[in-house]
Simulated assay, not measured.
Amino acid sequence: MEINTFGWDLLVRSLKCNPLTKEKILVAFIHWSLIRKKLKSIGIGEEKALSPEDICSELLPDGWDKNEKFSLRYLFETSVYILHGFKCGETIIFNLLDTTDLTTSNTAIDINDTVIRLTGTLQQMIPTYIKLTAKLESTLLQTIIRRTVKNSEAQTDTPVDKSDIRRIAIPSSSSQPSVGNTRTEERRQYPDFGESDLNPFGVGKSFRSGLRGYRWIAEGFSTSRGEVRSVRSSCW
């Protein structure tokens, strides 16, 4: 497991602590871990609401080390977090409060077993910083991790705006005219077209049935003899 230590050296140089102690190096490491999780420092105190006067920073605020117990305020997205810390023997107990839903997470770290030197690189000052980072991920930083996962799930479950989806209207089979309906419509528009070819003598129709412009005139039709004596065609 590799950890990018960018920002650590700058943070240590910015510490205005006199004298610089192991306790303060440890607090600086916890602060640096929160900054790596995208939190921003907004001062000290117990105020749970964000104020217009709050200024975001990646450095520890002035005066944070005046008391044995301290409260550092942080901003993550739109939520305010408060990091509480106090020394108990050779151990510092840290508690991180999410002021949005009042969930907390905590951890306890032995000072002398963790911080070995007050100067040098991070590896020299805290040789077990990789192991310590893993411990913070599973304890103190769980409040941040839960918030990140919750926000990620909320974005995934966001419903799609159906107004943005273009639909192509496909006519149903019932709306498409059948062949029989088409023929009926054509016959309705052209009632006599082709009638004379199929029924030249106009049986069951008027003598004007048939192609327009022609007519058949049957003379001397004898039903008793079943024949036509003379048939004459004339044009209109």
Rank of each mutant, 00 (worst) to 15 (best):
I144A: 01
L140E: 02
L136W: 01
L122G: 08
L122R: 08
I145G: 09
T121H: 07
P127F: 06
I130N: 06
M125V: 09
R117V: 00
T128N: 14
S152E: 12
R146C: 09
K131W: 04
T128I: 12
S152Q: 14
T133Y: 15
I126E: 09
A134M: 12
V149A: 13
L118H: 07
Q124W: 01
L141Q: 02
L140K: 04
P127T: 04
Q142Y: 01
I126G: 06
S152V: 06
P127V: 04
R147D: 14
T139Y: 03
I130H: 04
L141S: 00
E137G: 03
K135C: 06
K135A: 04
S138M: 03
I130S: 08
Y129A: 02
Q123G: 11
T139R: 08
E137K: 11
Y129H: 15
T128W: 00
N151R: 14
L118E: 07
L118P: 05
L132D: 02
N151V: 08
L132S: 02
I130M: 07
Q123I: 07
T139V: 05
L140G: 02
I130V: 14
G120M: 07
N151S: 13
P127G: 06
T119I: 05
E137T: 03
T133H: 13
S138T: 11
L132F: 05
L136M: 03
P127L: 03
I145W: 10
K131A: 12
I145N: 12
A134H: 12
V149S: 12
I126M: 10
S152H: 11
E153F: 13
E153P: 00
T121L: 08
P127R: 08
T143A: 15
L118F: 05
Q142H: 01
S152W: 07
R117C: 04
N151F: 07
Q123T: 12
K131N: 13
N151D: 13
I144Q: 01
L132R: 01
K135F: 06
L140T: 02
M125L: 02
Q123W: 03
T148M: 12
T133N: 15
T143G: 11
I145Q: 13
L132G: 02
L140Q: 05
P127H: 10
K150V: 09
T139N: 14
V149N: 10
M125C: 02
Q123P: 00
N151A: 13
R146A: 07
L136V: 01
S152P: 01
I126Y: 10
E153Y: 13
P127Q: 06
I130K: 13
N151C: 10
Q123F: 05
Q124L: 11
L132N: 03
G120V: 08
E137C: 10
R147Q: 15
M125W: 00
K135N: 12
L118C: 04
Q124C: 03
L141V: 02
N151T: 08
L141E: 01
T128V: 08
L118K: 04
K150C: 04
